[in-house]
C-alpha cells in the first residue's frame, strides 16, 4: 500500500461552479496516490469566506493549494485571485488557475495578478487525469513552500 507522502492529509481548495468538473476532479484524485482533503466552494464569495474562515467556514483549515476557475458566479476568479494576492496572510498560498479559457487576455491578466500558474483544462479525460496528477505531484510534493 502507498503511504501518503506527508503525515497529515493535504488540503486543496477547489473553487469550481460546475459540479461535473468537481466530481471529475474528485474521481481523478480518488484514483491517485495523494490522499489530500479536497474542499470545494462553488463561487468566489464562498471561496473567500473559506480562506478567511468566515461564517460557516469558521473551522476551515488553511489550504496548501488553491485550484481556481476563472468564470464563477457572484465574484469571479480574477477578483478572488486579486484578494488572495493582496492579503499578507493568504498570498503565499499557491494558486493554480484551472479554466477552459485559452484566451490570451485571461492568461496575461492571471499572471499579472500573481497566479502561480495557469492551466487550460484538457477536453480529453486521460489528459485531464495527467494534469491533475502533475499538479498534485508538483505543488504538493516537489515544491518547497514556507512553513506556516
Amino acid at each position: 500500500m502507498n503511504l501518503p507522502t506527508r503525515w497529515h492529509p493535504v488540503d486543496v481548495l477547489l473553487v469550481e461552479d460546475n459540479p461535473g468538473d468537481v466530481r471529475l476532479t474528485l474521481e481523478v484524485m480518488k484514483d491517485g496516490k495523494f490522499h489530500n482533503h479536497l474542499a470545494v466552494t462553488s463561487d468566489g464569495v464562498e471561496a473567500l469566506d473559506y480562506l478567511h474562515r468566515r461564517g460557516r467556514h469558521a473551522d476551515a483549515f488553511r489550504p496548501d493549494l488553491v485550484l481556481l476557475d476563472l468564470n464563477l458566479p457572484r465574484k469571479d476568479g480574477r477578483e478572488v485571485l486579486t484578494e488572495i494576492k493582496k492579503d499578507p496572510e493568504l498570498r503565499r498560498i499557491p494558486v493554480v488557475v484551472l479554466t477552459t479559457s485559452s484566451a490570451e487576455a485571461d492568461i496575461l491578466k492571471s499572471y499579472n495578478l500573481q497566479a502561480n500558474c495557469y492551466i487550460v483544462k484538457p477536453v480529453d479525460l486521460d489528459q485531464f487525469t495527467r494534469v491533475i496528477r502533475q499538479i498534485q505531484e508538483f505543488w504538493l510534493e516537489i515544491v518547497k513552500l514556507p512553513a506556516e
Binding site: 461535473g20 483544462k121 477536453v123
Partner: peptide, 14 residues
C-alpha cells in the same frame, strides 16, 4: 461549446 462537450467526452471516457 467546449465546456459542455468536455463534460460529455470526459464522463464517457470515465
Amino acid at each position: 461549446l467546449q465546456e459542455p462537450l468536455r463534460m460529455v467526452a470526459s464522463y464517457l471516457q470515465l
